[in-house]
Each structure stands twice: as structure tokens, then as C-alpha cells.
Design a protein around this nucleic acid. Structure first.
Length: 761
DNA sequence: TGGGGGCACCTTTTT
DNA sequence: GGTGCCCCCA
């Protein structure tokens, strides 16, 4: 948070208030209803951010509160930043001094650092990233001697996360829930985990809120202080709050009873991480006398896009229901396009983008929104091939990359010698001969003497328990650390980082690596040092990276946006592509499996969010075949395609699937009738079932004067057919056994059992 | 101790 | 297709 001086109210008052101009009556009401709780139900594209930021500006401009008396929380750093900028633009300078505008987690961390002692922490506690969390859990699972395969650390982590989202401490976990892990040991492991965190002076993400709630509940004087402090509370994306966030807000809002929340139940897409749509549905009960304001006038999309989106979301049963309207143009109908496979999908999108671009429209007006990040790769490859500039938003996270985490671990260890997680991470990276056996010895010694790993390592070196290369490696590491700690006192932290990476041999390790990624990793390390320079101290930098997942990249370049649907929330684009609308992909099979009807509704909201990002034009695509985990599968169009009202959506490619002439994957039968085969793959069965139901299906492709049964692995092949496999080359089918093929490969001279195969050129 | 080969499992979305 | 894990050998 900024430390800039708080502006004088008189300065703010002088700012002219033309900011109210151009607001519609509902928005204006949302800005000017300042005497009690307000619930703003704001549909997509109805100007809710504008209403919210204007409200904040209005409070300041009318001198109702000092900037430091306003608590404004968002979910993402991006949203917080945007709010700050927009308030600044509305009323001029002074917003730097909004110290309590931030994400739930950053504000939570801010409060917790001040009150850490109340929950048994020191104020310089470390915020763990998910990687550290998993290591810790793994250790705990191991220590409890559980079957690590059956009860994975990942599983435990997600359970504990869920419990924390619900604001449950280990004592609150109901017995039934506890049985979700290791036959009833769930709560026990949760308790051990919390003890470990506390010993290490660490918190995880969930703690930032959960411990806040504890502080406020258990210390009336502290709560009272914040009651007096926060005269106005503003909350963005209220439909995404989880129970812990809700309790936190409710505690804080008891003081002024002046809380304004904005949200849209139709855009609740974070149920999987604990969001409770109920929070928004219940708001009027929680805050009696609340004013409810509905923003239903959409300023963003054309009539057809809005109509298609509204028609789709109307299928959902659990919703408050809104009627969005626009008096803008009807525009074009939403275009639905069937393609053969993922590659054709990427080709189709790329050429449509070129077409758009050739008409003088900007690339930065175009977004490709996918359900899951693995879908991005096909687009990236195609864009690269065609030279279409693009940016991937929320791709592999900078601060979560291995090399960045390793570098952080070194720095954490320089700063705090007893950071065991950091020690463990880098003790043998780069390799210095300290293997598992040595690490285990150190850990045992540490446990016996109740000290940190690095202290125990120091002690062990005075005995002869560790010998050979391990001894030398450990010795030089400890000496280096001491040396760096000395240097830290006088050096700038970014220079120190460079020194550490150099002298530890870490940079050298990647320089010696000749693989393609190593170069990128070195560049990332350089970028890291550059980024560190932007912060005043190592502490400030580390706090930033713990709470922010992205490196700020302010690219105003003319580039196509490529991102997930989740990442696209809050954004808008003239042209939006929505690929992968196929059953199992979107709606995601996993979501359906895990959450049934509720999961499906959330998927549908995601589709709604996607469509409503578009201003002028939306194109939906679905493929007939898709490669998932490297396996080809026949897939059916998403049910969402059928739910689009036909008066607002149209199937654009008359040929449906297979419009492209480029061959993809195929089983070519050399001789005989391909349909005589007994090979029945799951995909082939789905294909037949779809045909029986009269659904559109992939065509049977003809080529080279012969019938190719189908253009994917789900072709039917006969014994004796010559087939081609991407990895093993050409071979001959020896035997067909249910869904498996036994193939004799020419190059390797080996027989192989396959359940996925074959490709022609 | 470390590296290579074989193998199971897998991936939604994120502060 | 990619990764992480286990086992075996130098």
C-alpha cells in the first residue's frame, strides 16, 4: 500500500463534481444512497464498476470521510488497481492515500501484520505459496505414516482450503467432514498443519482471512477500533465471497452499518473455491433496511449478443433473475461454427482474426476465451505460425515458476535463517552433494534439538555424522549464507539477489543446461532482479509477490488476447471467440462429476460471462474430435449450443464439421472393407449413438480412392491394415482385441498394444 | 548420490 | 502430451 500523504479534504472538495454526469437514474441512486446498507445487483455490462468508483469518489468529494476511513475490497489486484485509477480520474489527485483499497487478501494481511501477536504470530510472518503448502502437507502425511498414494498431500490441501474458506478452525470441522480424509484423521491433520505453520511463523492464503476473523471475534477492543475507523465499506463482486470473507465483512460492517456491495448472481463462477452465492441472496436479511438497486441497462453488447446470453442463462434455475436490456443496435447474430478438430478450430479463429485485421480493426479488440488453459496451446501455436501478435493472460504465473521460487527461497533464507521450507528447497539446488540421506539426518537432528534446519546443519558439521561430498557442500552453503547475510546489511536488495544467484551457482546451473527452457529461465531470473529493483526493500518485494500472482505487464501493444473465461471476467472486447464448446470440455466433465446440477449451472454462468464479454460480435466454436491427454476422442457439441435461442444465434458453417480439407489423424486401411473390423472404440460408439439420435456427426471421409473410415483414431480398422503412429511410425495390425490393437511396428521391430494410435500424413 | 528408463496419472478455473 | 515418481545401476 502507498505511504503517500493523505490529501486534505479541502483539496478534494475543490475538485469539481462533474462525475455525476452521464449516470443513469439507477447508477445515480447507487452513488447517492449513502445512509445505510446498499445492495447493487448489477448485470453484465451495466456499469457497476463505474457506479462503485463514482460512489467512492462521491464520498471523498463531499467530505463524508477521509480516504483512510474507507474500506474498499476487490478480489483481484487488477480490479483494485483499476478502481484506484478510476477514482483518481474522477476526482483528481489524492487517491494514493486510499490505504484500505485492495484485495481481500492484501487488506487481510495488512490488518494481520498489525495484530499478529493476538494469534501467536510475529508480524513478519511469511505468506506461503501453494508449493510450500504442499511440501508441508506432504511431510505431515508422511509423519503420520499414511499411505501417500491414497491420501495425497494435494487432496489434504484442498480439503483444508475448503475448511478455511468456510471459516472452520480445526475444532469446527464436523466429524463427517473429517472423515473425508484418512478415515477421520482430517481435522487432526489440519490441527497439526496449523501448529507447524505457527512454529514456522507462516500463514497460508486462507489464514489471511480466517485469522482476521479470529482476531476480530476474540478482541472486542480491536474490533471496536476498526468499527470507528471504517465509516464506509465497499465490496466488489460480492457474489464471489466465501464464508470467511462474508464473516469478516459482517464483523467490520457492524460499526457503521454502511456497507455497499455490488454483484451479479449470474456471474458467480468461483463456487469451486468456496464462493457462496447465498451471501448475495441473503444480503437483505443480513443488513435489514438495505436499499436494493438493480442495474439492468446494458451498455456493452449488441441486442443479439445480449439476447443469446440472456436466453442461455435463463436455463438456470437458481437465480434471482434480471432483465437486461439495451437500446443499442441489434448487431449480428452470435455465430456458431462446427469444425473438425482443435487444429481446424485454431485455423478458423486465426483466419477470422486476419480478416478482421485486414478491415482495419485492431487486434487488441479481439479475445479468445477458453475454458481450460490447455486449450490455449493450439491457438498459441497457430498464432505464432501465422505471425499474429498475441498475449496470454494468466498463463504460467511468473512468481510460481520453479526458478523464481528457488531464487525466492535463497533470499528468504538470507533474511531468515530459520525458514525451514526455504532451506529444504535449495539445500541441494544446484546439486552440491547433499542428498536425501543427509537431509534426513539434518531433519532428525533439528527435531531432537528443537531447532531450525540450518541451525541443526551447523551443529551436525561439528560432528562427523555427515561425510564426503555432502559435508563439503553443506559447509560451503552455510558459509555462503553467512556471507550474504553480512552483505545484506550494506547492499541494495536487487544487487544482493544477483550476488546470491551468482555465488550459489544457481545461475550457472541454468547456463550449463542446454535445454530450450533454460534460456527462458535465465531471462526470468534477470527479470526478477529488475522487478525487485522497483521495491524499496526485500520485505516489500516479498510481500508483493506473496499477494500478487502476475507481474504487471502494461502492454498497450496491438495484440490479440488469449485467456481463460475466468480471467476474462470484468473485461470486454468488440470481438470474442469462444472455442471448445463441447460436452466434457465445456461444460467441464469434472465440474459435473463433482458438483452435479450445481456444477452445471456454474458452467452455464461461465458461458454467460464469456458471451457477455463481447461488444459487437461473438463466435462460438465446437469440434468433432479433440485430443485430450494426447488421446483422440470424438466429442459432441455442448448442450449450451442447443440452449442458445435461435433468434439470436446462427450456425454459420453450413457444412458443419470437416469443412477444412487438411487431413488430420486417420487410420488408413490398406485393403478390404474397413467396416468389417471388430475394433469398437468408445469414441466410435459415441459416434454411432449420436447418429442414432439424429445429432450432427463427423462425416465419413473419403481419400485416395479408398474409404477412410473416420478421420480420427476412432476409425475401424481391420487386421492386416497398415497404420501409422506418431511415435512408432508405420506398422501392421496383427490383432484386434476389444478396444485394443496389437500392432507390429516396422522400424522398431516391436509389437505393441495400443489403445490410441494412428495417423496418416 | 544422481541419472536414466519405465510407468501411472493426469489437469478446470485462482487470491 | 507432459510430469512426477519409483526403481535400478554407475
Amino acid at each position: 500500500m502507498s505511504t503517500a500523504a493523505t490529501p486534505k479534504l479541502s483539496e478534494l472538495a475543490r475538485a469539481a463534481p462533474p462525475y455525476l454526469d452521464g449516470l443513469n437514474p439507477e447508477q445515480r441512486k447507487a452513488v447517492e444512497t449513502l445512509d445505510g446498507p446498499v445492495l447493487m445487483l448489477a448485470g453484465a455490462g451495466t456499469g457497476k464498476t463505474r457506479a462503485l468508483t463514482t460512489r467512492l469518489a462521491h464520498i471523498l468529494a463531499t467530505q463524508r470521510a477521509y480516504p483512510s476511513q474507507i474500506l474498499a475490497v476487490t478480489f483481484t489486484n487488477k480490479a483494485a488497481r483499476e478502481m484506484r485509477e478510476r477514482v483518481g480520474a474522477l476526482i483528481g489527485a489524492g487517491v494514493e492515500g486510499l490505504p484500505w483499497l485492495g484485495t481481500f487478501h492484501s487488506v487481510g494481511a495488512q490488518i494481520l501484520r498489525k495484530r499478529a501477536e493476538l494469534v501467536g504470530l510475529e508480524s513478519n510472518f511469511t505468506i506461503l505459496d501453494t508449493d510450500d503448502q504442499l511440501r508441508l502437507m506432504k511431510q505431515i502425511v508422511q509423519a503420520e505414516e499414511l499411505d501417500e498414494k491414497r491420501w495425497t498431500a494435494r487432496h489434504l490441501a484442498s480439503l483444508i482450503d475448503r475448511w478455511k474458506n468456510r471459516a472452520w478452525t480445526p475444532d469446527d470441522v464436523p466429524e463427517g467432514e473429517s472423515y473425508a480424509f484418512a478415515d477421520g484423521k482430517g481435522a487432526h491433520l489440519y490441527r497439526i498443519y496449523q501448529q507447524r505453520l505457527s512454529t514456522l511463523n507462516c500463514v497460508d492464503f486462507g489464514d489471511l482471512l480466517l485469522l482476521n476473523v479470529r482476531v476480530l471475534r476474540e478482541n472486542p477492543d480491536v474490533l471496536d477500533e476498526y468499527h470507528r475507523k471504517f465509516r464506509y465499506i465497499l465490496v466488489d463482486e460480492y457474489q464471489d465471497t466465501n464464508t470467511a470473507q462474508y464473516l469478516w465483512l459482517r464483523l467490520l460492517a457492524q460499526g457503521s452499518n454502511n456497507i455497499c456491495v455490488v454483484g451479479d448472481d449470474d456471474q458467480s463462477i468461483y463456487g469451486w473455491r468456496g464462493a457462496e452465492v447465498d451471501n448475495i441472496l441473503r444480503f437483505e436479511k443480513d443488513f435489514p433496511g438495505a436499499t436494493v438497486i438493480r442495474l439492468e441497462r446494458n451498455y456493452r453488447s449488441t441486442g443479439h449478443i445480449l439476447g443469446a446470453a440472456s436466453g442461455l442463462i435463463a436455463t438456470n434455475k437458481t437465480r434471482l433473475g434480471k432483465t437486461l436490456w439495451t437500446d443499442g443496435e441489434e448487431g449480428e447474430k452470435v455465430e456458431v461454427r462446427g469444425v473438425w478438430d482443435g487444429e481446424e478450430e485454431a485455423r478458423a479463429v486465426a483466419s477470422a482474426i486476419e480478416n478482421w485485421n485486414s478491415k482495419g480493426r485492431k487486434l487488441t479488440d479481439v479475445a479468445v476465451l477458453v475454458r481450460a488453459s490447455w486449450q490455449m496451446r493450439a491457438f498459441e501455436e497457430r498464432f505464432l505460425q501465422m505471425g499474429i501478435p498475441h498475449k496470454v493472460v494468466g498463463g504460467p504465473r511468473f512468481y510460481e515458476r520453479q526458478e523464481i521460487r528457488d531464487a525466492h527461497a535463497y533470499l528468504r533464507l538470507v533474511r531468515a535463517p530459520d525458514d525451514d521450507l526455504a532451506f529444504e528447497r535449495i539445500v541441494n539446488t544446484p546439486k552440491r552433494g547433499v542428498g536425501d540421506t543427509s537431509v534426513r539426518k539434518i531433519a532428525e537432528a533439528a527435531r531432537r534439538a528443537n531447532m531450525s534446519l540450518s541451525a541443526a546443519a551447523g551443529l551436525l558439521l561439528e560432528t562427523d555424522e555427515i561425510k564426503g561430498p555432502a559435508r563439503a557442500g553443506l559447509k560451503s552453503l552455510l558459509a555462503d549464507l553467512e556471507n550474504w547475510r553480512g552483505a545484506a546489511a550494506t547492499m541494495r536488495h536487487d544487487e544482493l539477489a544477483e550476488k546470491v544467484l551468482d555465488e550459489s551457482g544457481y545461475s550457472a546451473m541454468w547456463k550449463a543446461d542446454k535445454s530450450a527452457q533454460a534460456q527462458g529461465r535465465l531471462e526470468n531470473l534477470k527479470e526478477l532482479i529488475r522487478a525487485m529493483g522497483e521495491y524499496g526493500s526485500l520485505e516489500a518485494y516479498l510481500e508483493h509477490v506473496a499477494l500478487v500472482t502476475e507481474l504487471d505487464q502494461v502492454t498497450s501493444d496491438d495484440e490479440v488476447w488469449l485467456m481463460t473465461l475466468h480471467a476474462a471476467k470484468g473485461l470486454e472486447f468488440p470481438l470474442v471467440f469462444l472455442p471448445g464448446w463441447e460436452e466434457t470440455v465445456f461444460p467441464s466433465q469434472r465440474s459435473l462429476d463433482e458438483n452435479g446440477a450445481a456444477g452445471l449451472e456454474e458452467e452455464r454462468r461461465l458461458a454467460y460471462v464469456g458471451l457477455t464479454r463481447a461488444r459487437e460480435r461473438a463466435v462460438i466454436l465446437f469440434a468433432a474430435n479433440r485430443q485430450i491427454y494426447g488421446r483422440w476422442q470424438s466429442v459432441l457439441p455442448s448442450r449450451f449450443v442447443d440452449e442458445l435461442p435461435s433468434e439470436h444465434a446462427t450456425v454459420a458453417s453450413a457444412t458443419g464439421y470437416g469443412a477444412s480439407a487438411e487431413p488430420t489423424f486417420a487410420a488408413v486401411t490398406e485393403a478390404g472393407d474397413p467396416f468389417r473390423s471388430t475394433y469398437e472404440s468408445p469414441g466410435w460408439k459415441r459416434f454411432q449413438a449420436a447418429q442414432a439420435k439424429g445429432l450432427r456427426t463427423p462425416p465419413v471421409i473419403e481419400g485416395d480412392g479408398r474409404v477412410i473410415a473416420s478421420e480420427n483414431q476412432d476409425a475401424r480398422v481391420t487386421v492386416g491394415a497398415r497404420v501409422f503412429h506418431q511415435k512408432f511410425g508405420y506398422g501392421q495390425v496383427l490383432q484386434v482385441d476389444g478396444a485394443k490393437l496389437i500392432v507390429d511396428f516396422e522400424h522398431t521391430g516391436r509389437k505393441k498394444v495400443l489403445d490410441s494410435f494412428v495417423e496418416t500424413h
